[in-house]
Amino acid sequence: MSATILSWSLLVALVLLGAAMVIAAVRMLRGPRAQDRIMAFDAFYVNAMLLLLVFGMRTGSTLYFEAALVIALLGFIATLALAKFLMRGEIIE
């Protein structure tokens, strides 16, 4: 019973998050300006991280948590560097 409930709702959640990633990717490709693309990238990696967490629940393994943590760390640093680059054209001042 509970296995069926969970497997269906987690599947739906995976589809929703996948759709969110696709939509963020659309904004990333359409732009029009660099700040739009960077913001879309930020949303994209957050969605990817949430997708991994749901995937971890579906497989019952906590291993995906570590991957999600690493995505969150690297994605944050990447967007920070890109946004900083927009400000001045230099990453390190």
Partner: peptide
């Protein structure tokens, strides 16, 4: 758990829709 996960996923999707 299903309710919480579905709520989170739909809010995230709405945010992405807003982005477009």
């Amino acid at each position: 758990a299903s309710f919480l996960v579905l709520l989170g996923a739909s809010l995230t999707l709405v945010g992405a829709i807003g982005l477009v």
